[in-house]
Design a protein around this nucleic acid. Sequence first.
RNA 1: CGGGCUGUAGCGCAGUUUGGUCAGCGCACCUGCUUUGGGAGCAGGGGGUCGCCGGUUCAAAUCCGGCCAGCCCGACCA
Length: 471
Amino acid sequence: MVAQKSVVTPQSEDFPRWYQDVLNKAELAENGPVRGTMVIRPYGYALWERMQAEVDQRIKAAGADNAYFPLFIPESYLHKESDHVEGFSPELAVVTMGGGRELAEPVVVRPTSETIINAYLSKWIQSHRDLPMLINQWANVVRWEMRPRIFLRTTEFLWQEGHTAHASQQSARTYAAKILHEVYRDFMEQVLAIPVLVGYKTAAERFPGAINSMCLEAMMRDTKALQMGTSHELGQSFATMFDITYLDAEGNQEHVWQTSWGVSSRMVGGLIMAHGDDRGMVVPPRLAPTQAVVVAVRSDANVVEACHSLATELHAKGVRVKVDDATDTGFGRRATNWELKGVPMRVEIGPRDLEQQQATVVSRIGTEKQAVGLGDVPAVLVRELDRAQQAILATATAWRDSKIVDVNNLSTAREAAQVGFARIPWQVLGTEGEAALAKDAISVRCLQRADGSLPQAMEEPDLMAICARSY
RNA sequence: CGGGCUGUAGCGCAGUUUGGUCAGCGCACCUGCUUUGGGAGCAGGGGGUCGCCGGUUCAAAUCCGGCCAGCCCGACCA
């Protein structure tokens, strides 16, 4: 076997450059003409569509229904919640002209939709029988970012945002945690194969307008943290400002308790940086738009026919499969391109294979090739796909865990956070320590219990702070 | 928005110090032939107002001024 030339900048040499190389060579996305915008190419969008499908299914299972609210929001709506407007004002895109004339009231392009959705929830909610009201929308939002990075932080990005109203604080809190665990964590670990730490955001990191922000934090291959998703308890502030009230069973007028929660196209960046290696992307099989590619090694009618017939068989078994019979491109180049895209399994068929009535099966996460009888390929592939899914999660988890260091003072925390996650008792760190670490670009990613579980309240004793550099 | 670096073909770059056969290289692309089991070879070919505007000069990718954009490091954030 010929030594493989490096096709992207090695991670160890220059991680940001590696990321750019993968975006380009795997044909995922590129910059749009307006600063901070991105063009998502078909393969990148296929990854997002798979994410949408899996997340949407879980959201519906959690009882929320999809709806759609407008892109434009009256500027006055934003001003109804003071923390909210303060948090988002610096990054708003505001439209002042329309139809060639100055608008009487400027409209903002939504940076998030709490305000407009709550304006309507207040019309729709009258009785305790209307609660809980569970709404989700898939949309694009715009935040004028100072330092954009494709997928991780773009001026316009794609996401889902859930907005719910409940009769009690407990119901809202329970639901926000349910979304965190049953929708987000389950999706990220079981589908994306990315292990996440869950916890509360500190007051400094909280969503503008929330009384409690819960989050999921993943570690990228450069040991920086990426916030993969959030679920917020909004308390009653939006309910008060937008007058969302209901009559309870005793006939009392009450304000609802609310939540909001979201995951975005940022997850595509997280996927790239959580699993990728020096050969490109590694896409876990349950997510992969293409789980297996059947490659015709040489231009030969029998070979090409065997590839298509095997693909048909695999498709019938529920494998998302493609045939690569573009034999006017050399085999090596095609193999490399599929690896760059992170397609989990490759099945190679050439004349030599055909003579033996076999195919050569290669996993993206391994290097060895195995010869498999043609008839056994579907069963082997199904087994290997499952194995790869488990292996990718296990590898990512073991690696991340090896980069989490327990520390007990500020200076060791600072040191540990340069090369991983520093875990330090919150009562040792405190808000002063948090501010001190911020000077070195280290933030408290989340507060969690010592066993890694989600706290019930900020005031719980013995919470641990996870500190890291982040995207 | 601060600090640093960089804008030359789709991508990556050389050339700028010392103005003048510098419009160049590698990859990619097109055609033909030979190839195809890990980024193929040979031959031929297409593509760039050198980021933009202005200035200096007989002459500007090169010098001067301004602007714009991108990347990296920070502050802000999904």
